[in-house]
């Protein structure tokens, strides 16, 4: 029996490494959990892309839930996400606010003219200063903000049909339940 102990030790290690491999295929290792979930969204005041004289702030957006989608014309993964937003953006039931991140406004406009505009409104953070308050570290990222201005859900990386169906829509459904 005691001769089998090393074998069991080996099996234990195999199980441990196997679990490690399985775990890493299930999770994006680069994903950093946001400490902002269920906290008020940072106060922001940002100009609109189509009319820089007009600004949008956290306070003007209060009252109704909305989805902030961080994008940029230089961001390759945003190009992958874009068709999904074009087809599914209108079906999620909340306005989609495009957050143009560290981009030249003209590049952003060209990009949208070429690929289509899935956004109900676009705000511009040219310097990326406000994005630091949101804990943005890559595009695309999406934040679901409820009517009280609290961040309820965050997606790091492109929104895919699966993510929208399995994560985003349930999160939005939960919002509409508590706000009749």
């Amino acid at each position: 029996m005691s001769r089998l102990i090393p074998f069991f030790g080996f099996l234990l290690l195999v199980a441990l490494f196997g679990f490690g491999i399985w775990w890493n295929t299930q999770h994006d290792q680069r994903e950093v959990p946001s400490p902002l979930i269920n906290k008020p969204a940072p106060a922001f005041v940002l100009p609109k892309l189509d009319d820089p004289a007009q600004t949008v702030s956290r306070d003007t957006m209060l009252g109704k839930p909305y989805l902030i989608n961080v994008f940029a014309s230089w961001c390759i993964a945003c190009g992958e996400e874009h068709p999904v937003l074009m087809t599914e953006g209108k079906t999620i039931g909340v306005p989609v606010v495009g957050y143009n991140y560290k981009d030249a406004p003209d590049d952003a406009k060209d990009w949208l003219a070429k690929h289509g505009n899935p956004y109900d409104m676009i705000i511009v953070d040219r310097e990326g200063r406000t994005a630091i308050d949101f804990g943005v570290y890559g595009a695309p990222e999406s934040f679901l903000v409820d009517g009280k201005g609290v961040i309820r859900y965050k997606r790091i990386g492109p929104l895919t049909p699966e993510v929208i169906a399995k994560e985003l829509k349930p999160a939005i459904a939960a919002l509409s339940k508590e706000q009749p």
Binding site: V32, P33, S34, P35, L36, I132, D133, F134, G135, Y137
Partner: peptide, 8 residues
């Protein structure tokens, strides 16, 4: 920074 990006 932790408030924005977590302990990471």
């Amino acid at each position: 920074l932790v408030d924005r990006y977590s302990d990471f």
